[in-house]
């Protein structure tokens, strides 16, 4: 006989039926709306539209740039998020709450404000000094920096909750066995956090893929130079080529769904999403 899950509810009580109907109705309407949006998009495009976007040199460039910049952003985000997540989950220090709030700023700020702030930062004397050595604004590095500023904040959150879920006692045992702090991190904590690292990288990749506002302000929308897929949607819409914009959007939707499936399989659903 199939064993009933501990969390399963007893649906048989008649007095509870209106409650369940309420839950299903509210949830159902929202889910219907999400699926409806995607289905509407698919009815607005044809196979020929997809062929056309892949035939376009500019859109092929945008696809390549998006794949490259999102992958680099994801790697950079992991590189930064792992130590910050570990620090925030394992140590108490003065100013921790303030640092915690600062780390959340990119999540709560409107994306356009991040783009504007980046633009202003590189107009300061310090920013100009960096630009004189390594040009950033309106060039490829600006795309990566704009994506990184937002995506990394999400990766930090995932890494922090990952380390919080790993029993600290394992690292303490490693210390008593002769390991240094660094060895207990590399040999015990980080391998235990591997699913979280993959989830953080995947979430950062997905966030970077959807980033538009900061890139528009900080990198511009120059074809064959700083055009990523959200920029393509914007440029195609502004020239009235709605079919191409929808086809590119659907491509991004597919990528987003794949990412969600990957994150769920890494356990990211429990961690943060």
């Amino acid at each position: 006989m199939k064993k009933k899950s501990e969390n399963s509810l007893d649906y048989k009580s008649p007095s509870d039926i209106p409650f369940y109907i309420g839950l299903i109705l509210i949830g159902g309407i929202y889910i219907f709306f999400i699926v409806g949006l995607l289905l509407a998009d698919t009815t607005y495009t044809t196979v020929q539209d997809f062929k056309n976007i892949f035939a376009s040199r500019e859109i092929r460039f945008a696809i390549r740039l998006s794949l490259f910049s999102c992958s680099l952003t994801a790697l950079l985000s992991i590189w930064v998020a792992v130590p910050i997540g570990y620090l925030m989950s394992r140590f108490n220090f003065p100013g921790k709450s303030f640092l915690d709030a600062v780390l959340d700023i990119p999540i709560v700020l409107p994306p356009l404000v991040i783009g504007l702030s980046l633009l202003i930062f590189f107009q300061t004397s310090f920013g100009k000094m960096i630009e004189s050595i390594f040009p950033i604004t309106y060039a490829l590095p600006s795309v990566i920096l704009a994506q990184f500023m937002v995506a990394c904040a999400f990766a930090v959150r995932v890494m922090r909750s990952t380390f919080e879920q790993i029993d600290q006692r394992q690292e303490q045992v490693a210390l008593t066995l002769g390991a240094s702090r660094s060895q207990s991190f590399w040999l015990v904590a980080l391998p235990a956090a591997r699913h979280g690292v993959l989830a953080a990288g995947t979430i950062a990749w997905a966030r970077a893929l959807g980033e538009f506002g900061p890139i528009l302000l900080f990198s511009g929308a120059t074809r064959m130079k700083t055009e990523v897929l959200p920029t393509t949607v914007y440029l195609e819409m502004s020239t009235g080529n709605i079919e191409a914009a929808v086809a590119v959007s659907l491509m991004m939707v597919t990528a987003a769904i794949l990412v969600l499936v990957l994150v769920r399989s890494f356990g990211g659903g429990r961690l943060y999403l």
Binding site: Q172, P191, A192
Partner: peptide
């Protein structure tokens, strides 16, 4: 002295085996 320099063997209450090894 740090825990790593005390030459002790420690078995905690929750055992805390290393998850990935």
């Amino acid at each position: 002295l740090k825990a790593s320099n005390r030459n002790i063997g420690y078995v905690p209450q929750d055992i805390a085996l290393f998850q990935t090894m």
